[in-house]
Computed example of a mutant assay.
Amino acid sequence: MIAFLGMGLLGSNFTKALLKKGQQVQVWNRTADKAKALEAEGAKAFDSIVDAVKGVKRIHITLSDDAVVDAVLAQAAPGFEPGAVILDHTTTSVEGAEKRTKEWAAKDITYVHVPVFMGPANALEGSGVMLVSGNQEVAAQILPWLETMTGKVINLGDRPGKAAGVKLLGNMFLITLTGGFSDMLATAKAMDLPGSVITDLFSEWNPGAAAPARLKRIMTADYDSPSWELQMARKDARLMMEEAAKGNKTLTVIPAIAKEMDKWLEKGNQNKDWSIIASENL
Rank of each mutant, 00 (worst) to 15 (best):
242 E>W: 03
30 R>Q: 07
263 K>M: 08
193 L>E: 11
69 V>D: 05
253 V>M: 14
124 L>M: 04
33 D>I: 07
128 G>I: 06
272 K>S: 11
44 K>P: 01
128 G>H: 12
235 K>A: 14
168 L>F: 09
75 Q>Y: 07
93 S>C: 05
223 Y>A: 04
205 W>C: 11
270 Q>T: 07
204 E>T: 15
7 M>S: 06
171 N>F: 08
53 V>T: 10
178 T>P: 00
205 W>Y: 15
135 N>V: 04
60 H>M: 04
18 L>F: 09
13 N>D: 13
83 G>N: 07
193 L>N: 07
43 A>Y: 03
179 G>W: 03
122 N>Y: 06
23 Q>K: 12
226 P>I: 05
176 T>P: 04
38 L>T: 04
223 Y>D: 08
138 V>E: 04
6 G>W: 02
27 V>A: 03
248 N>M: 01
25 V>F: 00
264 W>F: 15
268 G>K: 10
132 V>G: 05
88 D>E: 09
154 I>N: 09
242 E>Q: 13
221 A>G: 01
72 V>W: 00
176 T>G: 15
171 N>A: 12
87 L>Y: 11
59 I>C: 03
29 N>K: 00
128 G>R: 08
158 D>G: 06
282 L>V: 12
145 W>V: 05
37 A>T: 05
134 G>S: 06
80 F>D: 02
239 L>D: 09
236 D>Y: 03
274 W>P: 00
10 L>E: 11
148 T>L: 09
58 R>E: 13
22 G>K: 05
14 F>E: 03
121 A>S: 10
159 R>I: 08
111 Y>M: 04
224 D>K: 07
157 G>L: 06
119 G>Y: 11
197 V>Q: 10
237 A>C: 09
25 V>E: 02
142 I>D: 07
163 A>H: 12
222 D>H: 07
254 I>V: 15
170 G>R: 08
216 K>T: 12
184 M>W: 11
113 H>K: 13
92 T>L: 10
205 W>K: 07
31 T>E: 06
196 S>F: 01
229 E>T: 07
84 A>I: 06
137 E>R: 01
210 A>H: 10
10 L>A: 10
74 A>I: 00
180 G>T: 08
274 W>S: 07
88 D>A: 06
50 V>F: 08
21 K>G: 03
270 Q>M: 02
110 T>L: 02
111 Y>F: 14
260 E>P: 00
144 P>E: 10
197 V>G: 06
83 G>Q: 08
204 E>N: 13
128 G>Y: 10
256 A>I: 11
214 R>P: 00
237 A>E: 02
44 K>R: 12
132 V>K: 11
155 N>L: 07
97 A>T: 11
57 K>Y: 12
59 I>R: 04
208 G>F: 13
233 A>I: 03
222 D>E: 14
157 G>W: 13
55 G>C: 05
6 G>Y: 02
123 A>W: 02
73 L>I: 10
236 D>P: 01
48 S>Y: 05
28 W>Y: 12
140 A>E: 14
14 F>D: 01
160 P>H: 02
196 S>H: 04
99 K>P: 00
264 W>N: 11
210 A>I: 08
245 A>N: 10
56 V>H: 05
28 W>P: 00
